[in-house]
Design a protein around this nucleic acid. Structure first.
Lengths: 193, 193
DNA sequence: CGCGGGTTTGATGATGCTCAAGCCCGGTGG
DNA sequence: CCACCGGGCTTGAGCATCATCAAACCCGCG
């Protein structure tokens, strides 16, 4: 149940066995079926979710009704609406499971308590935030400099696990173009070889 | 000299007068003339810079030689290449002054020391990072959903201080389009009224 | 006064979007 | 077991937005 989580800890910080044991009590295990929703647009996001198994995504709708995927999260990743979670504001995002999934949830209070009791957990959280910030910066640069085809190729290289497990139109909405465009890109790549 | 910095502290956390006094010794005051460079592409970013006076920007060049502005920073803002600063990697960005400016610099070591000695400073840093993350998320959403004209209007509303003080082509490169397009957008907005 | 960076304007073109239709395939109910 | 349904993917035609390239203009500064 906590395999992926502890693996994630160990990649960034060092926790004692006692601390790991203590951790367990703060997380709420939760299973989601495919298409079930963890956070509904308009609600306040009260959970930081860690994915033990499965795959989720967050997305929002613009005024024209177009879907924009913000993030995917597979095993070993965190997902939440940080803006809503941190400021208790209403979220514009929806977070849903794309496969049957197993999560470990952390409420705001549990997170604060953990940071108080285990200093290394605060460090872990800060490192996560730093990495997320840097990844977002890279994503902005990518939208400014790359063509649709380059973005898709890069995504495939960076996250092959995601490209294979997710419907095409969601990849397209993540990369910032339409499903039709992605279809044509794939055709073009096929014809190249 | 520290007016803007202490103002920024007070907006986010509470420091005792003694802590404020202690802080001062960790910062390195630095003046930059217009067009002078704080961080050169290829170097490792060793400073977190706080702007007391003036205005700076960070930018990078893509393979075609096009300039992309990443961030502007006016009085009361921080600017750095966080990715390079935190991981000691070579920066792809250049940071330069757009006007004669006065900065307060924080090295990696000074930052760590301050976080050790003043817990509220660590909280302040975390809040900055959170805000930066949220702002980046909003910027990504904006590029996905808005037209060039909408982006420009929004920028004017959000940061009128920047729009007035910065050359047009830098605004365009920040917003993700060309100087010619921005010129046409401005013409269009003029003709509307 | 002349230079040069920044901005404007015009003509043309590429990239990706929209709308519409057809196809493929897996799931469901008769 | 088959027919049907529907979601997702593909394909095509026309179109909108913005980029590119080139020229002219404007204006502050040396």
């Amino acid at each position: 149940m906590f395999d992926q989580l502890f693996k994630s800890f160990q990649e960034k910080v060092t926790l004692t066995p006692a601390e790991m044991e203590l951790c367990k009590s703060f997380f709420i295990p939760k299973k989601l079926r495919k298409k079930q929703v963890l956070l509904q647009e308009g609600d306040v996001c009260i959970y930081n979710a860690f994915v033990e198994k499965g795959i989720l995504r967050s997305y929002f709708l613009d005024e024209k009704g177009n879907e924009h995927t913000v993030q995917f999260a597979i095993e070993g990743w965190w997902i939440t609406d940080l803006s809503s979670f941190l400021t208790n504001s209403h979220s514009i995002y929806t977070i849903e499971a794309l496969e049957d999934s197993e999560l470990l949830l952390l409420t705001t209070e549990a997170r604060e308590a953990l940071m108080d009791q285990i200093p290394m957990f605060e460090r872990y959280q800060r490192l996560l935030l730093q990495n997320a910030y840097i990844a977002n910066q890279a994503r902005i640069n990518s939208t400014l400099t790359e063509t649709a085809e380059e973005k898709f190729i890069k995504l495939g290289k960076a996250y092959p696990g995601i490209v294979q497990r997710v419907p095409q139109h969601m990849l397209a909405s993540y990369l910032g173009f339409t499903a039709e465009t992605l279809s044509r890109i794939r055709k073009h790549l096929r014809e190249k070889e």
